[in-house]
Amino acid sequence: MKNIYLISMFTLREAFSRKIIITFAGISTFVLLLFLAVFLSFDTGVLDFKFSTNGMVYSPGYTLAEKIQALVSIPIFGGTLLLSIFSASGFIPHLLEKGNIDLFLSKPVKRYELLTGKFFGGILMVFLNIAYLVIGLWLLSGIKFGYWNFSFLLTIPITTFAFSVLYALMILTGIITQSSLLAMMLTYLIYFVLSPVLALREQIAFITGSSFLENFLNMMFYITPRITELADQNARIAEKLPVDNWEAFINCGIFGVVVYGISVYIFNKKDF
């Protein structure tokens, strides 16, 4: 455990030193300032009243805040994932560089500890960045509308979870190819192309009428992470709607565990 902790902290430090965290935080700060400017530019005084029916309290201000949060949760999820993938893509290839990996492996550290330290370190980095942005937005809209929607904060763990699933895939491609570019491209491909296409697989199959395509898309749908569906669920949760697709979570979780397991297996056997 101590080794995993040490390597996680070291990875976090790497992210600081390579100015990854600063860049990330800079972009988040810019977004927050943008929201601040927008919020300052209109007066919510007119919305500031409540009415109740059947014991439920309604307020146009609350509704607006909720709608805004649900609306921004989608680009937050997508935008932070995009940045996170980009910033974490170098972790494994850097580790595997000649002269560096030899040194780590010469220490009394098990190989799975090394990999898991890198895994947690990357997740921790992304978690901090997302938390900064989401908590910032939550505070801004809370102060503006006097409405505190705790569900919106769940965007933090959900986005971090989505990232960790994709990060597992990046670790696997990083170990096999040792290229940050390839790892990044494959992950973007799954996230931006495959996942949205597969979310529409029924429509596509219907339009083309090809049963082969339908079967193929169905198979892909089951074996690739359903990040697009996760994004939808994230938006629902932010809007306080109940989760209606647990399958997306389970599919992503299983994908992450399996891919990470394969990564550890390959890493354990590899010669450096």
Binding site: E14, S17, R18, H94, E97, K98, G99, N100, D102, L103, S106
Partner: peptide, 12 residues
């Protein structure tokens, strides 16, 4: 162990 061509992160 002192590896040949060892590489440490340059920012340290």
């Amino acid at each position: 162990y002192l590896p040949e061509n060892h590489k440490y992160p340059a920012y340290l």
